[in-house]
Nucleic acid binder design. Structure first.
Lengths: 142, 142
DNA sequence: GATTTGCTTGACGTATACGTCAAGTGAGTG
DNA sequence: CACTCACTTGACGTATACGTCAAGCAAATC
């Protein structure tokens, strides 16, 4: 039996997972109820594995990107297609392309917003520099 | 009196604006109630100008990016600062920087998601090509 | 056994973002 | 005047995403 180095835990209680990822237990249960997570059970108690943890990370990222839980669920479903079924692969490809298109549209919005904000920064910094020089001239006059 | 070329309208009713931008009148009224829009009035009837239209476009983009209406309102407030007040400019700069940081974080999430989706595409297309070659070989065998 | 801790479910509440509906007003038309 | 259309406000409803609370169970500890 080999000694393996200390590794990340393979199993988590709901509290451990919630604490580590900065999310409430209630939210995790809610995501499970919505079909986004499928933890195993020890009796009635939920047991989360590494895959569940990774899946929850994807959920949280989708939420941060502004997607509804239903949309996030669809996204996760993309990973669950059966690779042996040609028709499913075709369908998956179409869905992935659609989601790529949605994200690319969002990216355009995002770039535009960033561009405008950088414009504001430039203007404000220009205005502050201008008034700072004026103030500096006043000080020399004293 | 010069003849100016046909231009975009300067004033809109709520129905015109809603129809043009693909949003319901109810939503527009809601945004006004939340302080995001401030149309003028002709009696009791709302009158939207070009600035209102532009502002609504910003609102809609913020929503698409996943921000709450409160967050969108904060974003719009960035444009309303008084340029003659140095302290407001400083505060504005800090707020803009914070918003830039948030958008950049979102951009990282977005890039990551796109990267993963492109991976899926590559895998699926690889799998389809593999099975297509197999199918092609069968056809030649007939 | 009593207490504590950590988990469960179920139900109701809150916040956000509108949708729907009803009642009312004003302007234009026949 | 009656009707139609386009607007208004206000109120209640719906959907989403949880938060809060209560009751219950299991395991560990004193």
């Amino acid at each position: 039996m080999e000694h393996s180095p200390p590794a990340a835990p393979e199993l988590y209680t709901i509290a451990q997972l919630a604490d580590e990822l900065g999310v409430t237990q209630r939210a995790i249960r809610f995501y499970e109820a919505k079909g986004l997570l499928k933890p195993q059970r020890l009796g009635t108690q939920r047991v989360f594995g590494r895959r569940d943890r990774a899946r929850l990370l994807l959920v949280l990222r989708g939420i941060r990107l502004g997607f509804s839980l239903a949309e996030v669920r669809e996204y996760l479903d993309l990973y669950d297609a059966d690779p042996t079924k040609r028709e499913q692969m075709r369908l998956l490809l179409a869905k992935v392309q659609a989601r790529i298109a949605a994200l690319e549209a969002q990216q355009r919005d995002l770039r535009q917003a960033l561009c405008e904000l950088h414009d504001i920064v430039a203007q404000v910094e220009g205005a502050l520099d201008h008034t700072r020089q004026t103030t500096g001239a006043k000080r020399r006059a004293k």
